[in-house]
């Protein structure tokens, strides 16, 4: 499978990644080459093979539904780009 510049731009949008226009052709080439590598999977017959999501086939462990971590909002907000009154600031979403 090969990807063109328009497809790369669409994927970049899905990934919320700004890519400079001049870099798009190189990404298109790289991504096509990676997908070509990945296409080697097609040679394997996987009919009826159960997918493996976790190496140890462990069931997801559950814990009691109770708060386990202390409130550390101030510590976490100290490293945020922009906060005010305990809130994370972003540009206006609705005018």
């Amino acid at each position: 499978m090969s990807l063109g510049p328009a497809e790369v731009a669409k994927i970049a949008h899905l990934a919320r990644l700004a890519i400079r226009d001049e870099d798009v052709p190189a990404y298109a080439r790289n991504l096509s080459a990676i997908l070509e590598l990945v296409a080697q999977m097609d040679a394997a017959d996987t009919t009826g093979v159960a997918p493996m999501a976790h190496p140890l086939n462990m069931a997801q462990r559950l814990r009691p539904d109770a708060a386990a971590e202390p409130d550390r909002r101030e510590r976490f907000q100290a490293i945020a780009p922009q906060v005010e009154a305990g809130l994370y600031l972003v540009p206006k979403v609705i005018e």
């Binding site: 949008h13 919320r16 990644l17 990404y27 990676i34 972003v90 540009p91 206006k92």
Partner: peptide, 24 residues
């Protein structure tokens, strides 16, 4: 706007190999 914040922060913050893998 918010979309611009997401896309440019990520576009500036990640290098080429990380970008490639996110895109793939």
């Amino acid at each position: 706007d918010l979309l611009d914040l997401y896309t440019r922060s990520r576009g500036e913050g990640f290098g080429a190999e990380v970008t490639r893998r996110i895109l793939v």
